[in-house]
């Protein structure tokens, strides 16, 4: 098995790594690039804890090969805040206590950001369906939906 060199962009930074051919983007982010914000909850695309964007598109990084990231732009939770300034969604999740254990939070934040970029004024139902692939076992989703909606309102009026 020969390792593959990959040049890609993660959160705006040009990075290079080598990976095994069958290695997932999630494993490369976590183990090669020390970006452990994306989590493996299932490894099969059923929980969304590994959500990242790939060329602007929301994906499960456990269902992408690391080698596919060649020349791509990857966005992770680590890229959401602008230096010491939290993204509106991040602040909203804190203000609304929209997390308990927090393991699903990075994936839900990345997914919510992708939602609001596409649909700045979603209904509750649209938020819930968009996030259906992000399992949260602690909150029952109630405060998450409220936090996303509050962030959306703030972003619209900003």
């Amino acid at each position: 098995m020969k390792s593959i060199p990959v040049s890609t962009t993660v959160n705006g930074d040009a990075v290079d790594f080598v990976c095994a051919p069958g290695e997932t983007l999630l494993d490369a982010l976590r183990n090669r690039l020390s970006l452990t914000g994306a989590k493996e909850g299932c490894g099969t695309g059923d929980c969304g804890a590994c959500s990242v964007t790939l060329n602007g598109r929301l994906v499960c990084s456990c269902l992408v090969l690391a080698a596919e990231a060649e020349g791509a732009e990857v966005g992770t939770v680590e890229g959401m805040a602008d230096h010491d300034k939290l993204h509106v969604l991040q602040q909203s999740f804190l203000d609304h206590a929209a997390l308990q254990c927090g393991i699903c939070t990075p994936g839900i934040l990345v997914a919510s950001k992708a939602l609001l970029e596409e649909n700045p004024e979603p209904t509750d139902e649209e938020v819930r369906y968009w996030l259906a692939g992000n399992l949260c076992r602690c909150t029952g989703y109630d405060k998450i939906v409220r936090a996303v909606q509050d962030a959306a309102a703030k972003m619209r009026s900003a």
């Binding site: 970006l35 994306a38 989590k39 939290l86 991040q90 804190l94 927090g102 934040l109």
Partner: peptide, 10 residues
């Protein structure tokens, strides 16, 4: 926990 810095088991 909202920035991905929190360290979990893995």
């Amino acid at each position: 926990k909202v920035t991905g810095r929190a360290l979990y088991g893995a």
